[in-house]
Design a protein around this nucleic acid. Structure first.
Length: 424
RNA sequence: GUGGGCGUAGCUCAGUAGGUAGAGCACCAGGUUGUGGCCCUGGUGGUCGCGGGUUCAAGUCCCGUCGCUCACCCCA
């Protein structure tokens, strides 16, 4: 048992996995670029009040999941539990809205939530996300949804479900909430205990409860979709029709509610059956009121966030993550002191030419060095002893074909580059 | 915060009726005086999560504790 171990809910990403992360992050960046989203990087921590204000004091995230601490100046700081509030804070702080009306921003970042870990749920986890800031048009909603979908498509993912809903806005949500509460009030005692708690805090979420009894009780409950104001209704219809035009399959789920308070109108989630209990790959929606809430000018916006760990779990399950092993171009195996010194020098020379080169650091036998070369996945081995040095030649062995030949040291670089297909 | 499962070599695990630990893989060395992948031989490696108790004797029984994991809740 090691003396120190990683703290609960965190993961070390070891080299073999790091390759998979780099691949996924690369695809994310590439698709983001196609949609002309630009990267933004915000700090790992923020003033606590930013999240309390932005996400909502009553949400689970803020009320019980944040990593909050005091700095030496007794200021309350919080490790970011989500990405949208920080991005909007930066947007306001740097007056980006004054420079041009619409900003398309994306991020890839760790997030922190102090929950009990389980499959697909960590305390430090990673999200990529995008925010389209400054447009109220339904095209903007569709832009972010299509972007999310295309990232999954680009990764080869087939089995996922897109669910969408509208949660209304300032004019229609409050009245609907009251109607819903009126409906639920007489049935309150038949609901599960957590739903009874939700009644005051977040009644909309009761519709999303998985309890058999609650589902039955709410089967006939009024749905927000039937109580949207005219503008919200038109917006939702436009979003749906644009999605259809793009051939993006979706399910309307009138019970879909998101856990962060800032959402208005469009809300969506992307689910995967391959995940277990935590089945949301990503989610997002429109948040037209957030910028004002954070002290900025009214700035209608949409965005989404998606979990990288969950995505990797699914890709792994679907067998979409293979062939990431690769070894050096050349492994130098030596015999004798003089040859070892030559290897140090030659390795650097080759590396400066752009080749990936490695050699032995343990002073082992030639046989052990060859074994190491094989294990490393190297394409070529360079075998060098006193004989070769005297003759100014080296043995160049192709490790997959087992063919080898003697090459003059002076023409080594050219010979290697020719065989590796690299530009000389 | 609550509940279930699990904690034996680097990894995956076995361990019978309690008698102070094994396999496969990996690793190292040799079989080839200067050459890998297969094969053969040998070797390194374990306070059996930790603490306490029962017992002549505990990985094996009892209690506690910590950790991991899955689930509830919530969400990525």
């Amino acid at each position: 048992m090691p003396k120190f171990q990683r703290i609960k809910g965190t993961h070390d990403i070891l080299p073999q996995d790091a390759r998979k992360w780099r691949y996924v992050e690369g695809v994310v960046q590439e698709v983001m670029q196609r949609y002309n989203f630009d990267e933004i990087r915000t700090p790992i921590f923020e003033e606590t009040a930013l999240f309390a204000r932005g996400i909502g004091q009553l949400t689970d995230i803020v009320s019980k999941e944040m990593y909050t601490f005091l700095d030496r100046g007794k200021k309350s700081l919080t490790l970011k539990p989500e990405g949208t509030a920080p991005v909007i804070r930066a947007f306001i702080e740097h007056s980006l809205g004054e420079k041009k009306p619409v900003h398309k921003l994306y991020y890839i970042s760790p997030m922190f939530r102090q929950e009990n870990p389980q499959a697909g749920r960590l305390r430090q986890f990673h999200q990529f996300g995008a925010e389209l800031v400054g447009s109220a048009a339904p095209e903007a909603d569709v832009e972010t949804i299509a972007l999310a979908v295309d990232i999954y498509e680009q990764l080869g993912l087939k089995k996922y479900t897109l669910k969408i809903n509208s949660v209304g806005d300032a004019t229609c949500r409050a009245p609907y909430k009251e109607r819903l509460k009126d409906y639920l009030r007489p049935r309150l005692d038949k609901l599960c205990r957590s739903c009874q708690e939700r009644f005051d805090k977040n009644p909309l979420r009761i519709l999303d409860c998985k309890e058999e009894g609650c589902r039955a009780e709410t089967a006939e409950a009024p749905l927000i979709i039937d109580h949207l104001c005219e503008d919200c209704h038109a917006h939702f219809e436009a979003v749906k029709s644009l999605l259809s035009r793009l051939g993006i399959a979706f399910e309307v789920d009138h019970r879909l509610v998101r856990g962060l308070d800032y959402y208005t109108r469009t809300a969506f989630e992307i689910l995967s059956g391959a995940l277990g209990a935590q089945n949301a790959l990503g989610g997002g929606g429109r948040y037209d009121l957030l910028a004002e809430e954070l002290g900025g000018k009214p700035t209608p916006s949409v965005g989404f966030a998606a979990g990288i760990e969950r995505l990797l779990m699914v890709l792994e399950k679907e067998n979409l993550l293979s062939d990431f092993d690769s070894g050096p171009d050349v492994f130098i195996a030596t015999l004798g002191e003089e040859a070892r010194r030559w290897a140090v020098q030659t390795a650097r020379q080759l590396r400066q030419r752009g080749l990936r080169v490695d050699y032995d650091f343990l002073g082992r036998s030639l046989k052990a060095q060859m074994k190491e070369a094989n294990r490393s996945g190297a394409r070529f081995a360079l075998i060098v002893g006193e004989n070769e040095l005297q003759a100014r030649k080296v043995v160049l062995r192709n490790l997959s074909s087992s063919e080898q030949e003697t090459v003059a040291i002076d023409s080594l670089v050219g010979e290697l580059e020719a065989r590796l297909g690299k530009p000389g």
